[in-house]
Design a protein around this nucleic acid. Structure first.
Lengths: 198, 198
DNA sequence: TTTATTATAGAACAAATGTACTAATATTTT
DNA sequence: AAAATATTAGTACATTTGTTCTATAATAAA
């Protein structure tokens, strides 16, 4: 593993546990026993570390979405997989979803990219719903304008569940995962066609 | 208006527009043309300002909930009012909902209080739903375990909508309010009894 | 009106932080 | 092996930030 990768791994670990605002480049260097000078040789600016972590996050989302797009024949299980994959990613990079938009939005490279990626994800999930309605898995007696609303609800809960968990139950591991899935699945349950209610 | 109040007003204004992490006690003092020394005469620690703003936020929530509790005969309109009041409060203090739990959770006085207040709000909203089911406004053919889930979904979307808006459409004013209400109302629409679908 | 108090300004300090610089060491290329 | 390049440690510096200190000024109490 290269020093760069080690820095990123250490950074995300420290950020996730202590929060971005409390972790400085010196902390990261100290944690992995290298000098501050060395760290800034690999990442000139501390912001560049956060930027690199964001790129990792986006990369993981993209590879997952690419897989999903290949599946022409979307099934209900894909939706569950989607939620579970989202949970894993938001867990690994939970600092981005917990530290709010405050810090992240102040990094220009991220700010410029964020809107684009969220829009893309929304469109993709919208397609999945469309196909599931067509297949009769979701109800087809509803006005079409409800689907974008459902997609948005899914994203808000998916993205900010960790933040909410932090200020309420503080669940971890399997319990956290179960609660997350319960909330996400509960969101589209009312829209399932009657025959699929299981 | 006392200097203390002026400091809090200036602080929330600056925090809301620039984010907590970018605003220091010096910025606040400069914005209102007083000396740093004077500011720290009124608030010994910068954190105390955030703590005081949090107390304001909680206070506004409490006065609203107290009104609602007096209404013995809960109607559907109360639910909409509830959402609208929540929107106003989360807008006025949106920094707390945008800067994430990261900063806020590091202030002990807030951390200790936050869980309590969220739980209280959840219970109160749970009661409202219970009464609305009883009155036949919400469906009574559903398993009772779905109501806590719905309450939690409502709170996540209610609390973090501003954060989500920041990274997507960045709506403001009336448009923001309309979108917020659309998402919140869309959440409980599927649970309305058939006769109430209007 | 004198005295006490509260409020304010402005300078000063210490700690933290990002980052640049220098020299040494390791690694790769030729 | 020699030269070039990449990596590392350690130090140093400037800036920012929270906070304290001291001296005035304003206000309230006596």
């Amino acid at each position: 593993m290269t020093t760069q990768e080690k820095i990123l791994d250490t950074a995300i670990k420290l950020y996730n546990t202590h929060g971005i605002s409390k972790i400085t480049s010196r902390h990261i260097a100290a944690e992995m026993d290298i000098s501050p000078g060395n760290l800034h040789y690999h990442f000139k600016h501390t912001e560049d570390i956060i930027k690199a972590l964001y790129d990792r996050l986006v990369g993981e989302y993209n590879t997952f979405f690419r897989e999903l797009e290949l599946t022409e024949d979307v099934s209900f299980a894909d939706l569950t997989n989607f939620a579970q994959a989202s949970f894993k990613i938001t867990t690994r990079y939970r600092i981005f979803f917990r530290s709010g938009v405050d810090i992240v939005m102040q990094i220009p490279a991220i700010r410029d990219n964020l809107h684009e990626i969220v829009t893309k994800r929304k469109t993709q999930l919208g397609f999945i719903f469309e196909r599931l309605v067509h297949k009769g898995i979701f109800r087809n007696d509803l006005p079409p304008h409800i689907w974008p609303i459902l997609v948005e609800q899914l994203f808000i809960i998916g993205d900010f569940w960790w933040a909410h968990n932090e200020i309420t139950e503080r669940l971890k591991g399997a319990k956290a995962s179960a609660k997350y899935m319960e909330l996400i699945e509960g969101l589209f349950t009312p829209y399932l066609a009657v025959k699929n209610k299981n």
